[in-house]
Simulated assay, not measured.
Amino acid sequence: MTRFDNKTVLITGAAGGMGSSHARGFHAEGATVIVTDVRDEAGAALVAELGDRAHYLHLDVTSPADWENAIAETERLAGPVSVLVNNAGILARTALIEDGDLDDWHDVIGVNLTGTYLGIRATAPSLRRSGGGSIVNIASTSGHVGTGLIAHYVASKWGVRGLTRTAAIELGRDGVRVNSIDPGVVNTPLITTPLHPGAAPVSDYFSPDAFAIKRMAEPQDITSLLLFLASDQASFITGSEHIADGGMLLGPALAAGQVQNRS
């Protein structure tokens, strides 16, 4: 018996990066996994890799009609949703606020914040039909601080934190728990690939040597926390946020030579 036997888990932005790690993790724990994304070829390839108990659905998280269709098709294929993971997220071109492109702002807010809102709204009735369940929103440590050149992303992730708490209040009476995970720097293409020609990848702005745990996170580090929060093992946890950043938000780590080595 594994933690998600007979559970249906819908994951947004699941065709690659952290999302594909999450899909593999839930599938290994017995869930029927609904992989959703706008990257149809990659999504279909992941489902083919997973095999039984995996289905791919095209889902633009900014589209209410796509959400309606995704929930209806999920229930047709696998029954009501037990777990929703609002994982889809994007960055856009880096720029100072005064130089930023308004379209970039709308795109990032649309996917990261409005997409999460629409996901909660569309999935709540299905979660009730399943007898209750769990929503986990993927926020970011950027939702705890200000970060230059990515105002759109920072604003979206601060918003996800507030939305998580509000949804937890509203859905708790239905047996639905709502929590967030706030990753730091994770080794995914979103972080390691330049956002536009001439730009440095976001990972270049952060030095793991300054973290208490001196490395970037791997997607599986976030998946492990997600599986716990979505499971019945976390049945008394709701409206909470869980930072997984290797100590980045703690402040600079001690440098070599500042303390004696301990044996």
Rank of each mutant, 00 (worst) to 15 (best):
L195G: 12
A199L: 03
Y153V: 07
V83C: 08
L59W: 03
G159C: 07
G51Y: 11
E41G: 10
R53V: 02
V136F: 06
I243V: 15
T116R: 13
V85M: 10
V85K: 03
R177N: 09
A15M: 00
V259D: 02
P64D: 12
G246F: 04
W67N: 03
V259R: 11
E170L: 11
D107V: 00
A15L: 03
L118I: 10
D40I: 14
N261T: 12
H196V: 14
P201C: 09
V61W: 05
A15P: 02
A88C: 10
V111C: 07
I11Q: 07
S21G: 15
D52I: 06
H22N: 08
T147W: 04
T2D: 12
A95D: 12
N87T: 00
K214Y: 01
A78L: 04
L113V: 10
T94N: 08
A15F: 00
D52Y: 05
R121V: 12
L102W: 08
P189K: 13
E241T: 14
S82E: 07
V178F: 12
S203P: 07
R161L: 15
T223E: 01
S82T: 13
I181A: 09
R215N: 07
A151P: 06
I222F: 02
D245T: 12
V47D: 01
V85T: 14
N137M: 01
A44G: 12
K214R: 15
G100C: 06
H58W: 13
P219V: 09
F26G: 02
I120S: 11
L229I: 13
